[in-house]
Each structure stands twice: as C-alpha cells, then as structure tokens.
Design a protein around this nucleic acid. Structure first.
Lengths: 357, 357
DNA sequence: CTGAAAGCGCTTACAG
DNA sequence: CTGAAAGCGCTTACAG
C-alpha cells in the first residue's frame, strides 16, 4: 500500500462560513442542504447570503464526514468476473454498467468497479471493498462459482444478482433464455430450415456454465425437436488463447444450412472463417445469432438475431438496489428480461442461394 | 435524492475490541494496521490475541472514518463521455478501465465511474463527484470539448488525460497516431496497392474530432502521397441513428482496392456491407484496420490491422496518477503508446484474386 | 427557525 | 511499546 502524507489543506468548512456571517454551523448546514420548507422574508434573505458566501469561499462538502455521520456511503459496487490469465471481460458488462450508472447517478449514488476471480484470491489482488465497509450494496454480474456466491452472501449485506446463475425469488435479474431458444427455433422453422447447427460446445466451464448457454441451447434443441428437426453441432474446441475457431466448418456450409451463433462474437468468428474460405454469410449459408450488441446495430444491422436491452437490465438492477436500500425489509421481486427477434438478411431460407440486397 | 434513515447498527469499533481485551483503542489500531516493526515475545502474543478478538467480533474498518481522518479517499474517478441521446459508448473505454482498475487495486485504490456530457449538464444528471470532495484524482478518457477540459481543470485537483485531445508535457497519454498512419501506408505500399480508400469522413464532430481520427488520416495520406499514391474516399454519411453505412461502396470494390477502416466497427461494417453484396473481404477487395480490440483477436484474428494495448494504456494512466498523488509536486511526463502491425489475410495485395486460406 | 452540545470511528501528535 | 487527548467535518437530537 502506498503511504501518502495527509496534505495540509485549507479546507472551507461549514464553521468557517458560519464564522464569516455570524450564524451557527447548523444554520449553514440546513440552508445548504435545503432543509427549510417555509421561509420568512428575513430567513430568505439570510439563506441567500449564506449560499452566496459559501459559493464565494469555494465551499465543497466533505463526503467522508457525511458518510460517517449518516452511516451511508451512497456507493454501490459492480462485481465483475476477473478470470486469472484472461484480463479481457465480456464487453456486455460495459453496457450493463452504463445502465446501472445512469440510474444511480440520479439518486446521487456512485458506482465502484470491483473485480474478482476467486474467493481465495491473493489479498493484494482483491479490492478493498471486501475489507472495509465502503459500499451500501453490491451488484453481481456474470458467471461466478457457487463458492463465490456463498462467500459474497457472507461478506456483503445488500446484493442484487444481474445475469448470474442465481435466480431466487427476490433481487435477481436474468434474461428470459427459454424465450431466446424458442424464438430462434421458431423463425428458422418458419424460414424452412431443416438443417440447423449449434456452433460451439453446449458446455464449457469447469465449475458450471452460465445459464444463458445451458438454457438457450436446451430450449433451441427442444423446440426444434418438437418439429422433428434434430439440432446438429459444429464444434469450437476450447483453446488456451480463447480464439473461437471452427475446424469442421469447411465441408458443412451449404445454402440449406443455418448456423446458430451463441453471441455476436460467434457470429463474427463464423463470418471471418467463412470469408477466408470464400463463402458469404446469407448467400452460401444461413446465420442467426442469439444475442445482440450496440456495435452490431451500428455495423451489422442485417444480422438476423435475437436482441435484448442490456442497458435496460442495468437500469432495472440499479432500481432494484435502490428500492431495497430504501426499505431493507422489502426485497424487490426478481424479474426476467424479454427478448425480441430482429429479422435480417443473413438467413433467408434454405430453398435457393439468394443474391443482392 | 432518496432519503434513507441511518440504520441503527451494532458496529464493532476499535474501542469495543480494546474494551474486550483491556488495552487502548490505539493499540488495537496499531496492531491491525501492522504498524509495529519490532516485536517482543510479549508484544507478539498480545498482537495475536488482538487480531483474533477482532476477527471473532467481526471487526471491519469504517472506510468513512479513515477517509476523514487521513484526508484521503483513496478513490479515483474515470470520466467517460456521455453524449446526450447516445447512451452507448465506445467499448474501448471498458478495456482501458480494466487496465486502470488492475493497477489501482494493488494499492487499495478504488475506481469510480463518472459520466459527463456537457458542462451545463442538469445537476440531477451530473455525478456527485463534482459537488463533493470524494475523489483523490480523476482520469479523463475520450473526446470532450475544450469547454469541458477547462471546467475540469477548475473543479478537479489531480487529473490524468488518457486518450483525449490534450497532450501537455505532463500527465497525458496518447496513442502514437502518426505511427499508425505510417504503418498502414507502408504495408499497403509494400503489398503493391496503389488504390487506397479511406472509409468514412476525415472529420465528424462539431466541436473538433478526436486526435486519433485527425492524425491517423493525415499521416496515412501524407505517407501514401510521398510514394505518389493519392488517398481516395468512400464516404459514410453521418446518420442520426449512428449506423455506419457506405452507400457508394458497390461500384468500387475490386481486388486491386484496399479499404482502410478507422476502427474495428468500420471493419465489421465494411464486411457486412460487402457480404450483403456477395463480395468477400480478402478475395474481392483488400481491407486493413487502423485499430484492434480483444474481440477481434478472438473472432477475427485474420484481420490485417494495427494493434495497440488499451489495457496497458489504462495501467500506465493509473500508474501516472499514483505517482502524481504520492508526490503532487512531481508531475509524471506524458507518454505515447506504440502500435504494431499484425499481418492478416484480408489484404494480400492487388495482383490477383486469391482463394483458400 | 436557531444554536450549543455531542458524537460518528478512526488516526495524529504528544507525553510517558 | 502504550495510552489519554484531541480533532477530522459533518449531522442528529435536544433545548430554546
């Protein structure tokens, strides 16, 4: 830990303002916090003077003193998964974060970024928030082990679980993944596809997959099966460098094939692999994606995909947290976020090889 | 602002631990903070007891009290641009943020996310950090107006400028953009391309473009010109919905053309537009990208591009901030971050239309 | 409406 | 090494 000498500051305090005017610090505090409902003319004039002097003297409230007295920090943490050796995270976390922040800002709450890999993580690599009381609450995002979940329950008093594998009755948010698989299956079947390929393994992680993978895959498979279509697979072997690569794709791509990408990363990987083979998405084979990002909207709006609003999920997660903190006894109900199908030009149907826009 | 009653907590304080054992609060504080260098056997035994009792009683330091007494919050803000009506930001900010956080964590500093659009932004939409003393320093990222820069100088005591248009002698970081344009030009010329297209306008923003756009474009143009090649343009008109779209691309794509994308978003937009026309990147035309992301590494490693390490820039920015806070009189020197060329399979050269991997 | 007093939980500064 | 005292800057709780 760096040791920094406390700088000798000439801080403007409430008392200093009070002395300047000849009132008490309490009066200054009340005026600046807008505590007075009713004003006499005299009181009004005085309040104006106090505000003016405070401004002229450059008064800025001391957040630490407020925190201490009020017993609230008005800070919320966002816990992100920080896998050892994989320093880049799912960029989706960023959009969620922006949604959370947008809601919190309005209430004067601040957002702290907290990264965690493992419970047993070295103390020097673990955020200070686990060792001091500094957060009013913590929003957990992403795929953590059960061990981490249990530990967080112990050390963090108020938690909201956003897009994690936890879906209790209260304080959790998940995407409606049953719906995602159903939407994809339904639209592929409507387009007439009978050869549908899941691109990537149905299971990856050692300590349990993210629910989105499990449920998305299962509901797709079941819905297809109910119409007599058996889901097939193009494998993407797990690689140490995390590259998405489909060695078996070469011989499979035909116009009557529809490939299903788990997320936009997968859709890009399929496109680049196909292009390297001289094959074109939407012409030589069909492609649909189970997920969406803001970048797809800007750069690839023609991708046939299922979309949902991550910003909105963040906004709702923050709202849930605020409601909970306001009345800690009341635990807001968990909720599922809906998806929608966005028809594009990457899956026309299997009957013919189409050209042109 | 939400008003929440201060909860009546049974907080375990240093004094409570001291009372339990029969020492002073100061002794407990010193032991738990590891202030003692030399231990007698007696002192050691006592220190162990104190630590045990503290743990058993569930002691957690009160961050607010520490902040107040030490006159440091040990919190750093990251300022992100929050354009009105455009709630999604450059995802690059996320990687930078992770780099910043990785460095700060090691010193027990926390990272606060702060979004700002305009100086005149509504008080209710502006983060509390501008109205209270809560941050030891602020790292500014991205493209802000000069007006915002000036205002930040006034209200924030310690700033580091990461990837902004400011490049003073001290406390600033930029990517070496001259180098980017030169690298792209050099490799395109080496491959034999004489028809090179900049995709998008050389200028966009009303209050001034980001330096990366200006310098990247200029150095590319100049380096090409020095070899007798005139940079040509495929325009992407500014759209209200921020979609990247190249209406004039249809007639231009030929194997002897190399398109230069400003960033990976542009590379994706070009690819999807080309694919929709039945044309294939790397076969029917060449493509190089001036930028890189972690997702490209995973999903499109074959993209011919210029790369640099955003995580590293964040890490360095945080280091700069920490050095500065340690010795406020010493202002670390500004630095440029280097780029490197990653040869791929999207630009082979203009001579023939290649097929196969 | 106003103010004197007390205290939030720590750490600094000083005396032993 | 140890501890009694003071104080960081605010807000709560109480009395006028």
């Amino acid at each position: 830990m760096t040791t920094v000498k406390a700088p000798k500051q000439n801080t403007v305090t409430l008392q200093a303002i009070a002395d300047e005017i000849g009132v008490s610090a309490m009066t200054v505090s009340r005026v600046l916090n807008g505590d007075y409902k009713v004003h006499t003319k005299l009181a009004l004039r005085r309040a104006d003077e106090i505000r003016k002097v405070a401004k002229d003297m450059g008064y800025v409230p001391n957040a630490a003193a407020r925190m201490m007295r009020s017993r609230q920090t008005r800070q919320i943490g966002l816990l992100l998964r920080n896998e050892e050796g994989h320093r880049y995270h799912n960029l989706a976390a960023f959009i969620l974060m922006l949604g959370i922040n947008a809601r919190l800002e309005k209430e004067g709450y601040l957002l702290n970024i907290v990264r965690l890999g493992d419970v047993r993580q070295d103390q020097n690599r673990r955020s200070r928030v686990f060792d001091e009381r500094l957060l009013d609450g913590l929003i957990v995002f992403g795929n953590f082990s059960q061990e981490v979940h249990d530990w967080i329950d112990q050390v963090m008093p108020h938690c909201v679980w956003a897009d994690t594998n936890r879906f209790d009755e209260h304080l959790c948010l998940q995407r409606n993944e049953e719906q995602v698989g159903e939407l994809v299956a339904k639209h592929l079947l409507n387009l007439g596809y009978r050869r549908v390929f899941w691109t990537g393994r149905p299971s990856y992680h050692e300590f349990g997959d993210h629910y989105s993978l499990t449920k998305r895959h299962r509901s797709l498979k079941q819905t297809l099966a109910s119409q007599g279509v058996a889901l097939q697979y193009i494998d993407a072997p797990k690689r140490a460098d995390n590259r998405l690569y489909f060695p078996d794709m070469v011989d499979i791509l035909k116009p009557d094939c529809a490939l299903v990408a788990y997320n936009t990363l997968g859709a890009h990987a399929i496109t680049s692999t196909a292009n390297a083979m001289g094959k074109v998405v939407g012409h030589d084979f069909g492609l649909v994606c189970c997920d969406d990002t803001s970048e797809i909207f800007e750069a690839w709006p023609g991708l046939s995909r299922v979309s949902y609003d991550r910003f909105e999920m963040g906004y709702k997660a923050a709202q849930m947290m605020l409601d909970h903190l306001k009345h800690p006894s009341h635990q807001p109900e968990s909720c599922l976020i809906d998806s929608q199908w966005l028809a594009g030009n990457t899956a026309w149907g299997p009957l013919e090889k189409r050209m042109g826009l």
